[in-house]
């Protein structure tokens, strides 16, 4: 049974209509396969890896566990809304500078989680950061360069805030 009437999602500030989705499609699937926004990743589809992290009305959630149609009318922000080439956000730049990117599959989810963390807590201590990203599995880096990137991004954000 397809949902012939479709529904619309607000993604990165734009209204996007979704047609022909099957019942049960997750927000992750719709973003990736129907809206061409493949930056959110599909590593487990059971909420255990954080690779699909997006902001839903400002809260970070696993988009694999959001029923797409039930997100209609809510604000979705994906990695594609965080910053783009030539206009990278502080966290994205920090990842590059710190060497926090290897295979990169966990990277978008981690960036979303860290961006939200720093928004709520501009100067988090080590344990706070580790807990905040404990839902984002990374298999390449052992987290060392990622933690360094968080420090760099926090410094950049504070420098920005206190001219």
């Amino acid at each position: 049974m397809t949902n012939e009437s479709g529904f619309s999602l607000s993604v990165n500030g734009r209204s996007r209509s979704v047609v022909d989705a099957l019942p049960g499609e997750s927000l992750l699937f719709v973003l990736r396969e129907r809206l061409g926004l493949a930056g959110s990743k599909n590593a487990c589809e059971e909420g255990e890896c954080g690779s699909c992290t997006v902001r839903l009305d400002d809260e970070t959630v696993c988009s694999c566990l959001v029923l797409a149609e039930a997100a209609a009318g809510r604000q979705v922000m994906t990695i594609e809304g965080l910053g783009s080439e030539g206009d990278l956000s502080d966290v994205q730049q920090a990842f590059l500078d710190a060497g926090a990117v290897q295979c990169g599959f966990c990277t978008p989810g981690l960036l979303m989680a860290i961006d939200a963390l720093l928004e709520n807590d501009p100067d988090p201590d080590d344990l706070t950061v580790r807990e905040a990203i404990s839902g984002n599995l990374c298999r390449c880096t052992g987290y060392g360069r990622i933690l360094d990137a968080v420090d760099r991004a926090a410094e950049a954000r504070q420098a920005e805030a206190t001219p």
Binding site: G47, E48, G50, T53, L56, E59, T60, V61, C62, L65, V66, A113, E131, A132, S134, G135, N136
Partner: peptide
């Protein structure tokens, strides 16, 4: 419970 993302939902 789960991860921060899970706890938000």
């Amino acid at each position: 419970v789960g991860s921060p993302q899970i706890r938000n939902a």
